[in-house]
Simulated scan of single mutants.
Amino acid sequence: MLIALALVHALSAVPADTPDVTVRAAPERVRVERGASQYLNFDFLIHNGGADTLEITRVEVSVYDGAGGLQLRKLVNENGPSPSALLLSPDRVLPPGADGMIFNPFAEFPREVELARLRYDVELRPRRADGERGEPIARTVDVMPEAFAPRTRLRMPLQGRVLVWDGHDFLSHHRRWNWTHPVLAAHCITSNPGRYAYDFVLLGADDSLHAGDGKAHTQWYGFGAEVRAPAAGRVVAATGDRPDDGNFDLDALCADELAMYGNFVVIDHGNGEMSVLAHLQQGSVAVRVGDEVGEGDVVARVGSSGSSLFPHLHYQLVTGTQHGAEGLPSYFPGLRVRRGAGWVDAPDGQVDTGDIIDAR
């Protein structure tokens, strides 16, 4: 349930004559995803409007409870022979006029920590033409995250033993969707609807992904497996004629951001929550726009169409399908995940990269 609108704003910590440098959180509404820990899946957009090249040298987070008490504090900086600041961003050095992104380095917190307010202090240092560094520029971003759970009760869209080949943890490619990158910016990408996405792969009896060398789609245990509606709703987008060749037309993204997914089905569950089921097998999509589907109905089969490395099901819950839409945390109540020699309940039904799921 939404308990508050996130209040996110950047505050200047330097005099007004400091160059036009801004740092802000993206997306503006920061949601708390709950599982074994609490996760804040957001990042920082930086604009360098000054005359100097800037280098990101430090990010610190301070976490406060509802009474204003400090809960914890962490930082990354340039200390040490392999400084942690190198991990912050591919855009750690920003030329004048450039936009860049910092992937939030502090996105996971213990469940018992109260996340009432988080203050992120960002330090940037000018790098002048003579090689000297100027005085640090400081920016502060205050984040008040909101507790969130979707109104839609979801079920796993695949049945069997499933590997989360890639989820949305800090190292996931779904998470690292830098839309300030020139290629993405040129193709109208302005948000990350896949920030909470999963790539699901069905496993064989010996927990392998495929038989043989896996070069043929038919060797993958999941290829052609039934894809089921995770909840009831109305189909608002569907495409099923694209080949299972792992390719898509990059130039089509401005007209349709879903083009990267090859064959797909989008189900509107209401309340601003839509399921995207993607990379589906050519010719397998069994629904059309306007169809009403029930939870568990078979809508397609697993394929490898669009931007796909191998047969798998891409799933994400989103606010919409147009440019600027954002991803939402999604949970699958009742799931069990492998731990040690047995299976345990997934906390809150949340899974992520590397988890092996019993979805029978």
Results as ranks from 00 to 15, higher is better:
residue 211 A to F: 07
residue 5 L to W: 12
residue 113 V to Q: 02
residue 41 N to R: 15
residue 222 G to N: 03
residue 97 G to Q: 05
residue 98 A to P: 12
residue 284 S to F: 02
residue 81 P to W: 06
residue 194 G to V: 02
residue 342 G to T: 13
residue 149 A to L: 03
residue 252 A to Q: 12
residue 19 P to Y: 08
residue 81 P to Y: 05
residue 35 G to I: 07
residue 218 T to W: 10
residue 108 E to L: 08
residue 270 G to L: 05
residue 239 T to F: 06
residue 289 V to M: 08
residue 114 E to L: 03
residue 130 D to R: 08
residue 226 E to A: 15
residue 76 V to Y: 15
residue 4 A to C: 12
residue 298 V to L: 09
residue 209 L to N: 02
residue 299 V to F: 01
residue 101 M to P: 03
residue 13 A to H: 07
residue 165 W to D: 11
residue 69 G to T: 13
residue 230 P to C: 03
residue 110 P to S: 12
residue 200 F to I: 10
residue 138 A to D: 08
residue 84 S to R: 06
residue 8 V to A: 07
residue 278 A to N: 02
residue 100 G to F: 01
residue 261 Y to R: 02
residue 198 Y to T: 06
residue 255 A to G: 15
residue 214 G to R: 13
residue 259 A to G: 09
residue 96 P to H: 06
residue 139 R to G: 11
residue 138 A to L: 15
residue 31 R to T: 11
residue 142 D to G: 08
residue 162 V to H: 00
residue 70 L to C: 11
residue 337 V to K: 00
residue 185 A to P: 09
residue 330 S to A: 15
residue 251 D to P: 08
residue 294 G to C: 10
residue 126 P to D: 04
residue 356 I to P: 15
residue 178 N to G: 14
residue 67 A to N: 15
residue 229 A to V: 07
residue 1 M to T: 15
residue 313 L to T: 04
residue 271 N to L: 08
residue 106 F to G: 01
residue 151 R to Y: 04
residue 221 Y to S: 07
residue 61 V to N: 03
residue 69 G to K: 12
residue 234 R to K: 12
residue 319 T to N: 14
residue 286 A to F: 09
residue 275 S to K: 01
residue 154 L to D: 11
residue 234 R to F: 08
residue 110 P to Y: 12
residue 39 Y to N: 07
residue 285 V to T: 00
residue 24 R to V: 06
residue 58 R to Y: 10
residue 134 G to H: 01
residue 216 A to H: 13
residue 124 L to V: 10
residue 293 V to S: 07
residue 246 G to M: 09
residue 260 M to H: 03
residue 144 M to E: 05
residue 246 G to V: 04
residue 218 T to P: 04
residue 267 I to K: 01
residue 100 G to K: 00
residue 273 E to I: 03
residue 340 G to Y: 14
residue 114 E to G: 01
residue 165 W to K: 15
residue 194 G to W: 02
residue 49 G to R: 00
residue 163 L to W: 11
residue 262 G to L: 08
residue 339 R to P: 11
residue 203 L to Y: 02
residue 284 S to R: 06
residue 3 I to S: 11
residue 207 D to H: 12
residue 243 P to V: 11
residue 118 L to K: 09
residue 55 E to C: 10
residue 8 V to P: 03
residue 265 V to N: 00
residue 95 P to H: 04
residue 160 G to N: 12
residue 306 G to Y: 08
residue 88 L to P: 14
residue 70 L to V: 14
residue 54 L to Y: 13
residue 278 A to M: 02
residue 33 E to N: 11
residue 333 P to R: 04
residue 299 V to H: 03
residue 15 P to Y: 04
residue 184 L to W: 08
residue 277 L to I: 02
residue 173 H to W: 10
residue 32 V to N: 07
residue 262 G to C: 09
residue 307 S to M: 14
residue 126 P to S: 02
residue 117 R to N: 00
residue 18 T to I: 00
residue 248 F to S: 05
residue 302 V to W: 05
residue 206 D to I: 06
residue 76 V to H: 14
residue 225 A to V: 12
residue 173 H to E: 10
residue 276 V to K: 02
residue 259 A to P: 05
residue 155 R to S: 15
residue 359 A to Y: 00
residue 59 V to E: 10
residue 354 G to Y: 06
residue 167 G to N: 04
residue 300 A to D: 07
residue 251 D to G: 13
residue 76 V to W: 14
residue 217 H to G: 05
residue 87 L to P: 11
residue 49 G to A: 00
residue 289 V to A: 10
residue 332 F to H: 15
residue 30 V to F: 04
residue 359 A to F: 01
residue 40 L to G: 00
